[in-house]
Design a protein around this nucleic acid. Structure first.
Length: 803
RNA sequence: GCGCGCGUGGCGGAAUGGCAGACGCGCCAGACUUAGGAUCUGGUCCCGCAAGGGUUGGAGGUUCAAGUCCUCUCGCGCGCACCA
């Protein structure tokens, strides 16, 4: 987001090239992940273990011209702003990992014969004196240039072998290092030594510069490579005494456990001969003190690692041989797909006077670009996008052609939450007013620290976002990126889209395994919906356990909450009328369970009439509630209210069950109490709650906390109606009603529970202690002993320390 | 290997450092029933006739008091993984 200034001599194509090198959306020809079965390319994040994340199909690297989004330009902010949002540690960690920031230095080595500059990235510039060879990724562009004729055959074969291997194979075979010598040498800039240049597949073309300097004494991978090919391993970092201690322990422990194993210890001679079939080594890759690291201009000897890094980097910078560098694992986001279903790019291609084609954005007046109608919208085998089939659509009258790739699904999911704020706006994606109102921070320019839970007031961004971890490095990363771009363009007022994120746990199959077709343990959601209805399904999913936890499905468990809903139903309706209803229903042939919701059964008007046969439980009376009933109700209000706030649905439902278990025994059931109960039940079992609400009569009793007349459901119409259930004010619990006149206090002797005593609720500490001492059971345990100490926790417990 | 998280009955799970096992499932007994895979009532951590004792993966520690806090250890799950 900057104004570009071009040198005057640049022609238009040069300028375009420069623009593309800076743009957030740019075209790039490079190897990308191509999935044959899906008929499209995929982003790095969509490839898991060498297979497509969707469907698990094989993917291959293939060079193609694709649209990219420069998410790497936001890497630093995507990382640091994680501090400002309230997400789980594990999720933040996943994003940190994916972004993969590491600080170090880039160092330039020149090849001996061609004087080609090979740039490497290292996090340990302090070990530069220990670099005894270099390794290029087999795909590195210099490989063919530097390879000597004698080595060219070997190098060619190795490259072919690597290219044939899938990425999966490449990592699976990772234990044994392989590689070949190119025949070329480079100069180590600190000691002018000629060091051999190898190629090996343990160096990745996609990370850093695709080339490394190898320091075998202080890097595990380099160590084993050097070990295998007999390269020297000079030590340039000295461990401290504690580290040596730890290593000695490791050494003796390994010798004890596996006496036949040759253990290679970095405190011993690096080049000692290792024999035996297997061995263990620990290259010393910790911080320590630099040794053997000096030349005529600079000495690192004696410096701790951190200082040595500083000194050598400064020296390299001064000599123009390297510089301080921050490297990221994060790659730019591949943002085009060869599919029909996706947003077309608002882009056309034109031919310049130089004959080169270039892209141009369509003006706003040409938006939106709608996809053409196609009879065959399937992907092609060649990777040509299906939209290319619509010749009339592709070719424009002025001779330009439309971009035929489409955007991936992320194009929608990256900003839908903003569109939801103002979905009917036809001039802009979200109005300033709607955005500022809903996202909550007018004119906000800097992110705030995560708020403590007790702080009131609006939060920046979406207050609560619930989703699975499967989006950790996909949607949740992309959306943050888009949001930051929109923030920089002043379209949104917060730097982060989702303030608080909760990962709901996956529901496993009944066998405690991840549901999958191959395991045959999938419970399609419509099965429980058919059997017990949406209310029971919804209720059970919330009742199974904490929201965040992974938990297995249980058919028996669903029956349990279904029974609970049955008990709720029987709390409200006259069982005799229910029998009449069932008979009438059987006659009418609508055949279904009485307590299923109207929506699930798809009630006809005849069936609705049938439902009118259901009469209220005669025990329901418009009477004042007793203190005991009010206590039961208010305990439930308190628990459900607090648990909903904390997303503890399982314990909230448990509280509802406790209420029903009690209320079902009441001889008279005050309408006012039941109305409040239905308000509490409504978020959990909305259909049942609304049906029962409609049956409840008007309330006149003084305890009424609801309104005074029954109303019709508005769930479907979305209209506000005076007494409909969804619009009822949430009941407030009255602490005064929960106060007991008596309470039970556990009494411990020496920390062990000995009795539970009943005392008046307002008993002071002295009374509590006296009552505790007076207890017969307690007497048994303190007889003949002296009480050394008494701990009285008001309203909680008494602990007598006797000895 | 690195990072994150989790270990409590037969099962899913409750428990601001203060009565471990709420609530539900399952199981046992009983009631009503021609019947029960419906419903209701009671019981259900382990040892013990009882008094009592033991018990939150294991070992230590802090504390009057630990499932909860600390250290180590074992086990499980998830994520990343040749990232220089």
């Amino acid at each position: 987001i900057e104004t570009l200034v071009y040198p005057a001599k640049w022609d238009e194509s040069k300028r375009r090239e420069y623009r593309d090198s800076r743009r957030l959306a740019y075209v790039s020809e490079q190897p990308v992940w191509w999935c044959e079965q899906l008929g499209t390319v995929l982003a790095n994040e969509e490839v898991v273990d060498g297979k497509s994340e969707v469907g698990g199909f094989p993917v291959v690297r293939k060079p193609m011209r694709q649209w990219m989004l420069r998410i790497t330009a936001y890497a630093e902010r995507l990382l640091t702003d994680l501090e400002t949002i309230d997400w789980s540690d594990s999720l933040k960690e996943m994003q940190r990992n994916w972004i993969g920031r590491s600080e170090g230095a880039s160092v330039i080595f020149h090849t001996v014969s061609e004087r080609l500059p090979i740039e490497v990235f290292t996090t340990r510039p302090d070990t530069l004196f220990g670099a005894t060879y270099m390794v290029l990724a087999p795909e590195h562009p210099f490989v063919s240039q530097i390879t000597t004729p004698e080595q060219s055959l070997l190098v060619r074969d190795y490259k072919i072998g690597v290219a044939k291997k899938s990425d999966l194979e490449r990592t699976e075979l990772a234990k044994e290092k392989t590689g070949v010598f190119t025949g070329a040498y480079a100069i180590n800039p600190v000691n002018n030594q000629n060091i051999p240049i190898w190629i090996a597949d343990y160096v990745l073309a996609s990370y850093g510069t695709g080339a490394i300097m190898s320091v075998p004494a202080h890097d595990e991978r380099d160590y084993w490579f050097a070990y295998k090919f007999g390269l020297p391993k000079p030590q340039v970092v000295l461990p401290n005494t504690t580290q040596i201690e730890v290593a000695r322990e490791f050494l003796s422990e390994m010798n004890r456990v596996r006496p036949n194993l040759i253990v290679h210890d970095w405190t011993l001679d690096k080049d000692s001969v290792i024999c035996g079939a297997s061995c263990v080594s620990k290259a010393f890759d910790d911080s320590g003190m630099a040794i053997n690291s000096s030349n005529s201009e600079i000495s690192l000897d004696g410096l701790p690692t951190a200082e040595a890094k500083e000194k050598i980097t400064a020296w390299l910078e001064a000599k123009g041989l390297g510089k301080r560098t921050v490297n990221f694992k994060l790659r730019d986001l591949l943002f085009s797909r060869q599919r029909y279903w996706g947003e077309p790019f608002p882009i056309v291609w034109k031919k310049g006077p130089d004959g080169q084609s270039y892209h141009e954005a369509l003006p706003e007046s040409a938006l939106p670009v709608l996809p053409p109608e196609l009879t065959d919208y399937k992907p092609t085998a060649t990777g040509e996008p299906p939209l290319a089939r619509a010749k009339d659509w592709v070719n424009l009258p002025d001779g330009s052609t439309r971009e035929t790739n489409t955007m991936p699904q992320w194009a929608g999911s990256c900003w839908y939450y903003l569109r939801y704020l103002d979905a009917k706006n036809s001039t802009t994606f979200v109005s300033k007013e709607a955005e500022q109102y809903w996202m909550g921070k007018v004119g906000r320019a800097v992110p705030s620290a995560p708020r403590p839970a007790e702080t009131a007031g609006p939060t920046p961004g979406v207050d609560l976002y619930v989703g699975g971890t499967e989006h950790a490095v996909l949607h949740l990363l992309y959306a943050r990126f888009w949001h930051k771009v929109l923030f920089d363009l002043r379209y949104v007022s917060t730097t982060e889209p989702f303030f608080k994120l909760v990962n709901q746990g996956m529901v496993l199959g009944e066998d405690n395994q991840k549901m999958s077709k191959s395991r045959g343990n999938v419970i399609p959601v419509d099965v429980p919906v058919q059997e017990v209805g949406t209310d029971a399904l919804r209720l059970f999913e919330m009742f199974m356990g904490p929201l965040e936890m992974v938990k297995p499905w249980s058919t028996k468990g669903v029956e349990g909450v279904y029974r609970f809903l049955g008990r709720v139903w029987r709390l409200f309706v006259d069982e005799k009328s229910e029998t009449e209803f069932e008979q009438a229903e059987t006659t009418a042939g609508t055949g279904s369970r009485a307590c299923e919701s109207a929506e699930v059964r798809g009630l006809t008007s005849a069936a609705t009439k049938l439902l009118d046969l259901i009469k209220l439980n005669p025990a329901i009376k418009d009477l004042a509630a007793t203190p005991a009933q009010l206590k039961t109700l208010h305990a439930c209000i308190k628990k459900v209210t607090e648990d909903l706030d904390g997303l503890r649905f399982n314990t909230a439902i448990s509280a509802l069950m406790v209420f029903v278990n009690d209320a079902i025994t009441w001889e008279t059931k005050p309408v006012s109490v039941l109305r409040d109960f239905l308000i509490l039940l409504q978020p959990f079992a909305p259909h049942l709650a609304e049906e029962l609400w409609e049956k409840l009569p008007t309330v006149h009793s003084p305890q009424s906390t609801g309104k005074t007349s029954a109303g019709k459901s508005t769930m479907d119409s979305g209209l506000s109606a005076g007494d409909s259930l969804p619009y009822q004010p949430w009941p407030k619990f009255d602490p005064a009603l929960l106060v007991e006149s008596e309470m039970e206090i556990p009494v411990q002797v020496n920390g062990k529970l000995r009795d539970v005593i009943k005392v008046p609720a307002n008993a002071d500490n002295a009374t509590l202690e006296a009552a505790a001492r007076a207890s017969e059971k307690v007497q048994q345990f303190i007889a003949g002993k002296t009480i050394k100490k008494v701990i009285v926790v008001p309203k909680k417990l008494v602990n007598l320390i006797a000895g």
